[in-house]
């Protein structure tokens, strides 16, 4: 049931998009970080021993301006460039997340926003102090979330009382549950198994206990459960 944060991409489509992007950011951060830390450690190391160094700080004299040098501009440009690269990448990924479901599963963003689509399973999620209720289109109400593998799922998330945040961390689903408002979230679970559902917004004394289960089933098993109107299933844990 516990999956270490790295590479959750086999669990769901959103997790895949997340992981690609996280990997990109992490690579950029580590590369830039190595350069910056090397400078931060090496420069004091070298120049605390250097004997040729000049003392340019004189008591009572405002230090002069330095840095009309060209490399100042180079630094600025470098930072701007890496910023732009990150921005372009992340801009694309936001669009990717929104359009992925359309391209691969035929569910448009408009349908997603309206919370009704033919190809997708729509689950109404209600948070309350302290627990979750999941309601399916055929009227099943459950406190365990059963999901089909390989099919888009839309979550219509709301709350009865205070702010909660509905999340299935391993599937990279997180949507704020806000009283009086329905927020949409979606994913395509890929790997059957049992996943942790937890509240990610402090919601009172029972916040830590607001844990539930998401069970991703193979499609035929899910259909069986769905049509038998939510009888208890005994599923072997996996994934």
């Amino acid at each position: 049931m516990f999956h270490y944060p790295f590479d959750p991409s086999q669990f769901s489509e959103t997790a895949r998009v997340w992981w690609n992007l996280f990997g990109f950011y992490l690579t950029v951060a580590i590369l830039l970080g190595i350069a910056v830390y090397a400078a931060l450690v090496l420069i004091p190391f070298i120049y605390s021993r250097s004997r040729k160094a000049v003392d340019e700080i004189k008591p009572g004299v405002v230090p002069g301006e330095r840095g009309r040098n060209a490399y100042l501009a180079v630094i600025v440009v470098l930072i701007l460039a890496s910023f732009l690269a990150v921005f372009v990448e992340s801009y694309i990924s936001v669009n990717e997340l929104a359009s992925l479901i359309e391209e691969e599963y035929g569910v448009t963003i408009e349908q997603l926003q309206a919370g009704e689509a033919d190809g997708a399973l729509v689950v109404e999620v209600r948070g309350f102090q302290w627990g979750w209720t999941f309601k399916y289109p055929n009227g099943i109400e459950s406190d365990v979330l059963y999901l089909p593998a390989g099919r888009p799922v839309i979550f219509k998330v709301t709350s009865d009382d205070v702010f909660h945040a509905f999340s299935i961390p391993d599937l990279r689903v997180k949507v704020d549950a806000i009283p009086g408002q329905v927020n949409m979230g979606w994913t395509v679970p890929q790997t059957p198994g049992t996943y942790r559902i937890q509240c990610y917004e402090l919601c009172g004394v029972g916040h830590a206990e607001m844990i539930s289960k998401a069970v991703v089933l193979p499609p035929e098993l899910f259909d069986f459960w769905y049509e038998s109107l939510g009888e208890e299933l005994v599923v072997e844990e996996g994934g």
């Binding site: 926003q113 309206a114 919370g115 408002q181 329905v182 927020n183 949409m184």
Partner: peptide
Amino acid sequence: IFGRQVMP
């Protein structure tokens, strides 16, 4: 004014 939901 604009930091609101357009989704239902």
